[in-house]
């Protein structure tokens, strides 16, 4: 039996030290060890994007990352998006636009949208659909999600000018 390892990471700006076995994924460590259950498990094979988090500034499927690989990494999860009780533009646009039904896919969509808007502040509809192609939603359909992303992008642009 492989021994547990100590992993030190930054999560949403705070330093965390946790124990995990090599066979545990980052998703499992976030949810089961650290209690950060905002990140959801969907397919567990990298198709659905429900478990998307940012690792060193890049969106990744946390089900396809070993927790031990997060040693020294800078992580951002859905818990780090809102500021206190104040939702950010992406969360607000998903809520206002009813871009969700059951909500399991939503944290992943929001994290992926955060990455998209950091890379490209004014994405076209086609760019949004391509960037979000690794996130699957089984209830809403995608039109409301795409509209919410466009709305969030517009709000950020308006706030920036």
């Amino acid at each position: 039996m492989a021994k547990k390892r100590v992993v030190t990471t930054t999560i949403n700006g705070d330093t965390h030290e946790f124990l995990c076995k090599p066979q545990q994924t980052l998703l499992e460590a976030l949810r089961d060890v650290l209690g950060l259950t905002g990140t959801k498990e969907g397919c567990s094979n990298g198709n659905c994007g429900a478990c998307t988090v940012q690792m060193d500034g890049r969106p990744v499927d946390s089900c396809l990352v070993l927790a031990v690989e997060a040693e020294g990494a800078d992580l951002k999860t859905i818990e780090g998006v809102a500021c206190g009780n104040h939702l950010d533009e992406v969360q607000g646009a998903f809520l206002e636009g009813a871009a969700l039904q059951c909500g399991i896919c939503t944290p992943g969509f929001i994290m992926q949208t955060e990455s998209l808007l950091e890379e490209n502040a004014t994405p076209s509809e086609e760019e949004i659909r391509f960037y979000l192609s690794g996130n699957l939603c089984r209830c809403t359909g995608y039109d409301k999600i795409v509209k919410a992303v466009q709305c969030a992008a517009e709000q950020r642009q308006a706030a920036a000018t």
Binding site: G46, G49, T52, M55, R58, P59, V60, D61, L64, V65, Q112, S115, Y131, S133, G134, N135
Partner: peptide
């Protein structure tokens, strides 16, 4: 190759 998340890794 895969989606954007996959391409990160």
């Amino acid at each position: 190759i895969g989606g954007i998340q996959i391409q990160s890794r």
